[in-house]
């Protein structure tokens, strides 16, 4: 981007809320992302709508001030907004203003989620604002913004050992992080083994950018009902890791279906029953 060898254009499509990533192999110089990115995203996603921009009291965004590793920046989004059948957090948007693809993730929740809290790890390409925007079922919008100092996270080669990573591609692990009590929000962790290649690291032999290959969609259901889904891109770190909540009403299957940018599909599930303890 800075050297103008590639152009990376992230477009936010209103219809599908999906990300379109255009990678051009040559010349077309693209100015590096500017502070106007947020205005562009805001126009695309929330045109004409009011956003409560100082919502830290009801929407916590936990990020390091200075990231230890720009390719693995842990973030936590915690909501103190109501989450009931009639009023709940429908979506949480994660925007990293100065990343090559600024809309990093859109998480979708249902009343069966219990809570719209999310923890994951992201890549950050340069010093930037990171924003969490929560959208309530009645359409109200809340935003919390943190500034994070980190650089090079997207263009760093994925994988300290790419061969090992590719051999494990698509393997998933589910883990319950709290005891299961019927009707109560239960914390689960989903780990997906995937190099999540950004397409921004150079291949030595071809002198071309290693093709992008990343997880695009994660759908988690409990007993067949959606509890959390996420549209994501390479802003999410290698080996995507998501902690989220779901409410088990009784015994059932917690299932994840994952699709990546090469249309590869992976799935994994665990049986959940009340009384089951954390860590299993």
């Amino acid at each position: 981007m800075k050297n103008g060898r590639i152009a990376v254009i992230a477009r936010v499509s209103l219809a599908g809320l999906t990300l379109v990533l255009g990678l051009a192999g040559s010349a077309a110089a693209q100015d590096k992302p500017t502070a106007n990115n947020w205005e562009m995203i805001r126009q695309s996603l929330f045109a004409g709508r009011t956003i409560d921009e100082n919502a830290a009291a009801v929407l916590e965004l936990d990020t390091p001030t200075r990231a230890e590793d720009a390719a693995v920046v842990p973030i936590a989004i915690r909501t103190k907004l109501p989450h009931t059948a009639s009023s709940y957090v429908r979506k949480v948007y994660l925007v990293v203003d100065h990343n090559p693809s600024p809309l990093g993730a859109v998480f979708t929740f249902t009343p069966e989620s219990g809570r719209a809290d999310i923890e994951t790890r992201i890549r950050i390409e340069e010093y930037t604002n990171v924003r969490a925007i929560a959208e309530m079922s009645d359409g109200r919008l809340f935003m919390t913004t943190n500034y994070v100092k980190a650089s090079g996270g997207c263009s760093a080669p994925a994988g300290k050992d790419l061969e090992e990573s590719m051999a494990r591609l698509g393997k998933m692990k589910f883990r319950l992080e709290s005891d299961v009590k019927p009707g109560e929000a239960t914390l689960a962790q989903l780990m997906i083994s995937h190099p999540n290649l950004s397409g921004l690291a150079m291949d030595q032999v071809t002198r071309l950018f290693t093709p992008a290959h990343f997880v695009r969609k994660i759908d988690v259901t409990y007993g067949g009902k959606p509890v959390m889904s996420a549209e994501v891109d390479f802003t999410i770190s290698e080996n995507p890791n998501v902690r989220f909540y779901f409410v088990p009403s009784g015994p059932g299957e917690l299932k994840a279906e994952v699709v990546d940018s090469n249309q590869l599909k992976f799935e994994s599930s665990i049986q959940v029953r009340p009384g089951k303890t954390a860590g299993s």
């Binding site: 800075k2 050297n3 090079g152 263009s155 760093a156 080669p157 690291a201 150079m202 291949d203 030595q204 032999v205 002198r207 290693t210």
Partner: peptide
């Protein structure tokens, strides 16, 4: 391979 992949970041 390792240096090529990191070249841009290292030089920056």
């Amino acid at each position: 391979a390792a240096l090529t992949a990191r070249e841009r970041g290292y030089l920056e």
